[in-house]
Simulated assay, not measured.
Amino acid sequence: MKIATWNINSVRLRIDQVERLLTEQAPDVLCLQEIKVAEHLFPHEMFERLGYTHRAIHGQKGYHGVATVSKVPFRDFSRHDWQDNGEARHVGVELLGAGQGLILENVYIPAGGDVPDREVNPKFGQKLDFLERMTRWADRIDRPTLIVGDFNIAPLECDVYDHKALLKVVSHTPVEVETLQRFQDAHGWVDMGRTFIPAPERNYSWWSYRSYWRQKDQGRRLDHMWASPELAPQARAHHFVEETRRWEQPSDHVPLITEFAL
């Protein structure tokens, strides 16, 4: 089973790119973040045409939003408000049929603004609080689970193009890395990205629109796929689809795909 995740940065704007990815990579399940559309306006037709007949959408107008689309049957499992303000940032499903019993959690963690100080930047505090709520949730998980999405944190020194230069930049600050580590420890999550592409190998998933990314390669690994300890041994492959960043008007993120023998 191939499971993919992608911060698409507007599913309606980039619906043709989503179709191209599904056609070329043929994942069984695709988790999208930052769909930026309310549920009733989600572009169902293309997914239906390609056989992704099972869809769980948690959206809102213009911002945030997540969607999980699948060829494999599933049931809606959870929708947590880890932001504690009603924003659409999570949807969880339980796979049925092939992969039966696997819980697939799709999350879009807040970016956290520009200043890494909760006293002057409330968004940064909201990000840390979001992660703390996730950590309390992870401590109680008792099912094989895969959590995927845009975590908006590059945890390792080699997950950014310049560790020292980014230590005070939101997404790579020590407090964010430590907070994410507590979340990882709460369930013993196994990082698929670094299981198959070991540190310090280059493994970026995001490049800012503000830099000419192919020339400078100023990337960060902000997107992740983490598996429960009992699920991780069933993973067989993992890769990132960097060519999407070269497409016309691309998302600033690229997809990740993990293959499992379930």
Rank of each mutant, 00 (worst) to 15 (best):
M192N: 04
D162L: 12
S211L: 08
A165T: 08
K164A: 10
E201N: 15
W213Y: 06
S208Q: 12
R202T: 13
M192W: 06
T179H: 01
A186K: 00
H172C: 13
Y209Q: 04
R194W: 07
E176M: 12
N203A: 15
L166F: 11
G193H: 07
W207R: 04
R202D: 09
G219K: 06
R182V: 00
P198T: 04
Y212S: 10
V170F: 08
G219H: 03
E176Q: 13
W226Y: 13
H163T: 13
H187D: 04
K216W: 12
P200N: 06
W189G: 00
V177N: 08
G188D: 02
T179C: 06
Q218F: 06
R182E: 05
E201A: 10
V169N: 07
Y209W: 12
W189I: 05
Q218N: 11
W206M: 11
P174I: 10
I197P: 00
Q184A: 05
V160K: 05
S211G: 06
G193N: 08
H172S: 14
Y161N: 09
N203Q: 14
D185H: 11
I197C: 05
W213A: 11
Q215A: 10
Y212C: 05
V160E: 06
S208M: 02
W207P: 05
F183P: 03
I197G: 00
K164F: 11
R214C: 06
